[in-house]
């Protein structure tokens, strides 16, 4: 199959029952969306369930995919995965805490310069948990998935300026949370 074929064209082929087109689409998109789901719900097993459900929806809805549709496949699929993540977050409780998964020793206090990547990641993970849903989604889409503000705004269904506002507030809150966490850490050790 031609590798230059667009996602939207693949969807039309899938709608016609083309399983090769489905395979191409899965191979193209499984990794970034699986990473996205893992970052949002912070549970790998849960993210795998979400991806299976998301691709079932691709297969089922492909026949309804309209050629003249203005929405890009990636935007539509991000919305599907994001909604599944929101539903899952209400039901699931992460089986393993990310800090535990990375084997981070919480009682090991180190200055910033010596913090390992794993420790920094664990701190960000904790901070993300405390952000409101929309701010967390905005931060994840723009800073972690690398999407532009416009595309992220389309996914969240907000204007670009509202998106920028979400990002500013998200960054501010996250910086505060990380600083507070560090301060508490230092106070605990100097006691």
């Amino acid at each position: 199959m031609n590798i230059n074929i667009t996602d939207e064209q693949l969807m039309i082929r899938i709608g016609g029952g083309d399983s090769t087109a489905y395979k191409v689409l899965v191979e193209r998109h499984l990794r970034p969306y699986h990473v996205f789901a893992t970052r949002v719900i912070q549970d790998r097993a849960g993210a795998e369930d979400i991806m299976q459900e998301a691709f079932v929806r691709v297969w089922k809805n492909a026949s309804k995919w309209d050629q003249g549709r203005k929405t890009r496949f990636t935007t539509w699929f991000y919305r599907v995965v994001m909604n599944l993540c929101i539903d899952a977050k209400r039901k699931y409780k992460p089986a393993v805490d990310l800090a535990e998964a990375y084997d981070v020793q919480s009682d090991e206090i180190q200055p910033d310069a010596h913090l390992s990547e794993k420790q920094m990641a664990a701190e960000i993970e904790q901070a993300l948990k405390h952000l409101p849903d929309r701010q967390r989604m905005a931060m994840t889409l723009c800073y972690l998935q690398g999407l532009g503000n416009k595309e992220a705004a389309d996914i969240l269904g907000v204007t670009t300026s509202a998106m920028e506002s979400l990002l500013v507030r998200g960054r501010k809150k996250m910086a505060e949370l990380l600083s507070a966490h560090k301060k508490a850490f230092i106070e605990e050790t100097t006691r």
Binding site: E27, E48, Y143
Partner: peptide
């Protein structure tokens, strides 16, 4: 750092399960 730590490849089992949907 968080981006790098969470950039994990999906398992082969997951890929097989997903490809089995139209199967």
């Amino acid at each position: 750092a968080y981006q790098a730590q969470t950039d994990i490849n999906p398992s082969a089992r997951l890929m097989a399960n997903i490809l089995a949907v139209p199967g």
